Computed example of a mutant assay.
Amino acid sequence: MFQIQTPNLILLELCDDDASFILNLLNDADFLQNIGDRGVRNLEQARTYIRNGPVTMYRQHNVGLYKVSLKEGTAIGICGLIKRAGLSDVDLGFAFLPQYRGMGYALEAAQGVIQYAQEWLGLERIAAIILPGNTPSVRLLKKIGFKAEGRITLPGEHKELLLMIWKISAHGHSPREEK
């Protein structure tokens, strides 16, 4: 069974049992504003979202968004890697319930995912795309070594996004480790 453990968190693949959690997360006001409306309004739509999104991505690309839980089991957010049309690299995605923001959990989960991507998937470069005005996410990405590389509009979309890149340096270290 897939699992990433960090000092305070456990990241696991999403499944149908996570539908209630996903329904709440995807309908959070900040999620709707900064990530987008996924049209998920009931538990059956949440299960379909999980199956057609993360579960399909796990099978097809060996990456996806993972449920982030506290060690005692409370689901607090999602974090993982996404393979999108219009991006040559996988991109880091994350979203947390409001009551768990600003506590360092997104940073810890993102660092765990990057370490997994580097050590187990052999990735040397990861993208992140965000709305330029999403200051907390931009700040978090910079903290873990992502650098702005320009703007991008994904196929079929109309919003311009900030493209940030994390990559291993010529010395084999992440940008965060070089400081």
Rank of each mutant, 00 (worst) to 15 (best):
M1T: 07
I4M: 09
L9W: 09
L9Y: 10
L12K: 11
C15V: 13
D17S: 15
A19C: 12
S20Q: 07
I22G: 04
L23N: 04
N24C: 11
L26D: 01
D28M: 10
A29I: 12
A29N: 12
L32I: 01
I35S: 10
D37R: 03
R38I: 00
G39V: 01
V40F: 09
V40K: 13
V40R: 13
N42L: 07
N42A: 06
L43Q: 13
L43R: 14
E44K: 11
E44W: 05
Q45V: 01
R47K: 15
R47G: 11
R47Q: 15
Y49V: 00
I50Q: 11
T56L: 15
M57C: 13
Y58P: 01
Y58K: 08
N62F: 12
V63G: 07
G64V: 05
K67D: 00
S69P: 01
S69I: 09
S69H: 05
L70V: 12
E72N: 00
E72R: 09
E72H: 04
T74V: 14
A75F: 11
A75C: 07
G77V: 09
I78H: 06
C79S: 11
L81T: 01
I82S: 13
A85L: 09
A85C: 07
G86N: 09
L87V: 06
S88K: 15
D89R: 10
V90R: 14
D91P: 05
F94V: 02
F94M: 15
L97R: 09
L97V: 02
P98W: 06
Q99I: 02
Y100H: 13
G102Y: 03
G102L: 04
Y105D: 00
A106F: 02
L107P: 02
Q111Y: 08
G112A: 14
V113W: 03
I114Q: 02
I114L: 03
Q118G: 00
G122C: 02
L123W: 01
L123G: 00
E124Q: 11
I126C: 01
A127R: 06
A128V: 09
P132I: 03
N134R: 10
P136S: 10
V138C: 11
V138T: 12
K142R: 15
I144N: 08
I144F: 11
G145I: 03
G145A: 08
K147V: 09
A148N: 09
A148V: 15
E149L: 04
G150P: 05
L154F: 08
G156L: 05
E157Q: 12
K159N: 15
E160A: 06
L163K: 15
L163A: 07
M164D: 06
I165M: 07
I165P: 06
H171R: 14
G172K: 05
P175L: 05
R176H: 14
E177I: 01
E177P: 01
K179Q: 08
